[in-house]
Simulated assay, not measured.
Amino acid sequence: MKTNQIGNSKLHVSEIGLGTMSLGTDRAKAVSLIHEAIDNGVTFIDTADLYDFGLNEEIVGEALRDRRDSVVLATKAGNHFEEGKEGWFWDPSKKHIKGALKESLRRLKTDHIDLFQLHGGTIEDPIDETIEAFEELKSEGLIIEYGISSIRPNVILEFVKKSSIASVMMQYSILDRRPEEEMLDLLHNNNISVIARGPLAKGMLTDRYDEKIKEDGFLDYSKFDVLETVKQLNEIKGDKRNMTQTALKYALAHPAVATVIPGASRSEQLLANITAQNAPDLTPDEVQKIRDVSKKNVYDKHR
């Protein structure tokens, strides 16, 4: 599978990665799915301490026990939870970030994290303190690189100006083109890679879209809007690609995007995602046609 560099770092990741949030809690099934992903060329695995309150990291750690060197492993921190207590709260403090990293290392059964990410953030956060925590962890050799998972332009801009982040994870798809207006070119020009989550828009950009479309639509799309857009996308893609491949190739078309991380809970979903590696890239004309039939969304509430 094609690989891309994360920022200016030494990390290179498969263009199609695996987001593990939807793996579920069946250990044997989840471990098998991760192994299948790696066997099919996936070298980027993304998890977070919040997923199933640490259990997801434990499962990922179990799956990578004999395959740790085969992947770039990413996880996230910033949501403070405690075993035996309900709920969580946002905590970008240095104390929490460094403590969370220690717990993630324990659950993942590894001595370092390749890409450690802040799992959110607001403009009111003590951003300098948060950056200091990540820089210290990097200097200590406990993480290789760090990034932020956010859809807030103002927050991302602060990290671009003040930190040495290698990546920004953000939701990006044909139905969510918000990053195009403000973020993608900016990040690319600063040698910061984008990790695109949600590239299939909760399954609405797959060949099973009719089963996945919700009554309330998606972002500023009504259910009718989604149906009409997918209908036009089907005409654009022709016979060269299926809908899943078209959606993943669209997100990968911008040079800022290093990898897409569609989730999968079944082998069929995983393999459908991975087939995109063999599909032809979108031509500039096809990219423009897709933009012509989809909405140029903008960030409004999340700044």
Rank of each mutant, 00 (worst) to 15 (best):
L252M: 10
L219P: 03
V230Y: 07
I192K: 02
Y51I: 10
K295L: 13
K223T: 10
N191M: 10
K231P: 00
L175R: 01
K109Q: 15
R106Y: 11
H254R: 04
D185G: 09
S149R: 07
I151G: 03
R107M: 13
I213F: 03
S167R: 00
V298M: 09
V60I: 12
I236H: 09
T75Q: 02
I165K: 01
L184V: 05
L205A: 06
A77E: 01
A77K: 02
D300Y: 12
D46T: 03
M21V: 14
R197Q: 11
D216I: 12
S163I: 03
K95A: 15
E235G: 05
G120R: 05
E158N: 11
R178N: 01
G120S: 05
G238N: 06
D111Y: 06
A279H: 01
L108V: 06
P92W: 01
L227N: 11
V31T: 12
I195Y: 08
Y250C: 11
K231H: 14
S164L: 04
M243G: 04
K76D: 00
T130H: 02
D66I: 08
E136D: 15
V72G: 04
T206K: 06
H302W: 13
F224K: 15
S70V: 03
N242C: 09
L233E: 06
D207N: 15
A196V: 12
Q277M: 12
V31P: 08
G99H: 03
F44E: 05
P126D: 15
N189V: 03
L205Y: 01
E158K: 06
S70F: 11
L233T: 03
F53P: 01
G238K: 09
N40T: 08
A247M: 10
S22G: 02
F89W: 11
I123F: 01
L270V: 07
K249N: 14
E180L: 03
R197M: 10
K95C: 00
L252T: 02
S149I: 10
N4I: 08
N191R: 12
V71P: 02
E182R: 04
I261A: 05
E58T: 14
V31A: 08
G24D: 09
T47F: 05
I156D: 06
L186S: 06
R266C: 02
A74K: 01
V168N: 04
L200Y: 07
G7A: 10
L157Q: 13
A166Q: 04
A264N: 07
N278E: 15
P262S: 07
S22W: 14
N190K: 13
D111W: 01
W90C: 05
I34A: 02
I123W: 00
G238Q: 09
Q117R: 04
M1V: 13
D26S: 13
